[in-house]
C-alpha cells in the first residue's frame, strides 16, 4: 500500500510547497509585509523569515519530488504546516483580518479556510511522512520481482538520519 501511495502523495505534497515557495521567493518584500501583519515575530526576525522560509518550502518540495532526503523534507514540511496553522489560529482567535500570504503576497483568502486547507495538507503530509518513514516499503508477501526503484528509495531513505 505504501508503495502505491508514496509517489502520488509526494508529488502532490511537493507541488504545493514548490508553488508556495516560488510565489514567495518572487516577492520577498510582500511576504515580509504579510509576516509583519501576523504580529507574531519580533521585528528583527521579519526579514530573515521572509528570505528563508520560501526557500525552505521550495527546497523541501523539490526534494519530495526527486525522492531525495524524503524523510527530512516531509518532516520539515509538516513542521512548517504546523507552525503556519498555529499562526493562522492565533490570528483567527484575535479576530485579525490579515492577508494569509500562504501563496505569496496579499490575497483576500479567509483565514479559517486557509486553516482548514492547511489541516488537509497536514493530513497528506503525515501520509507522505509515513510512506517515507523507512522500514519495508512492500508487504513481506511481495516477491523479489515486484521490487522497484521506488521501494528501493524508500528503504534507503529509512537508513539515514
Amino acid at each position: 500500500m505504501k508503495a502505491y501511495l508514496d509517489m502520488p502523495a509526494r508529488f502532490v505534497f511537493g507541488l504545493v510547497f514548490v508553488y508556495a515557495g516560488a510565489a514567495k521567493i518572487a516577492q520577498p518584500a510582500a511576504f515580509a509585509a504579510d509576516i509583519f501583519q501576523y504580529q507574531l515575530l519580533s521585528d528583527w526576525l521579519i526579514y530573515p523569515a521572509a528570505l528563508f522560509l520560501p526557500w525552505l518550502e521550495a527546497v523541501c518540495g523539490l526534494c519530495l519530488w526527486a525522492g531525495a532526503f524524503k524523510r527530512g523534507a516531509a518532516a520539515l514540511c509538516n513542521l512548517l504546516l504546523a507552525v503556519f496553522m498555529a499562526a493562522l489560529a492565533v490570528n483567527v482567535w484575535r479576530g485579525n483580518d490579515v492577508a494569509c500570504g500562504c501563496f505569496g503576497g496579499g490575497g483576500g483568502e479567509d483565514l479559517r479556510m486557509a486553516l482548514i486547507r492547511d489541516g488537509a495538507l497536514l493530513a497528506l503530509g503525515l501520509v507522505v511522512q509515513y510512506c517515507a518513514g523507512g522500514g519495508q516499503s512492500r508487504p513481506k508477501t511481495a516477491g523479489p520481482s515486484g521490487s522497484s526503484g521506488l521501494s528501493g528509495q524508500t528503504g534507503e531513505s529509512g537508513q539515514s538520519g
Binding site: 524523510r71 527530512g72 509515513y130 523507512g134 522500514g135 539515514s160 538520519g161
Partner: peptide
Amino acid sequence: MSRLSIPWLEM
C-alpha cells in the same frame, strides 16, 4: 521505532 525517529541530520 525507526519509523518514529526524527531525521535530524536531513532536516
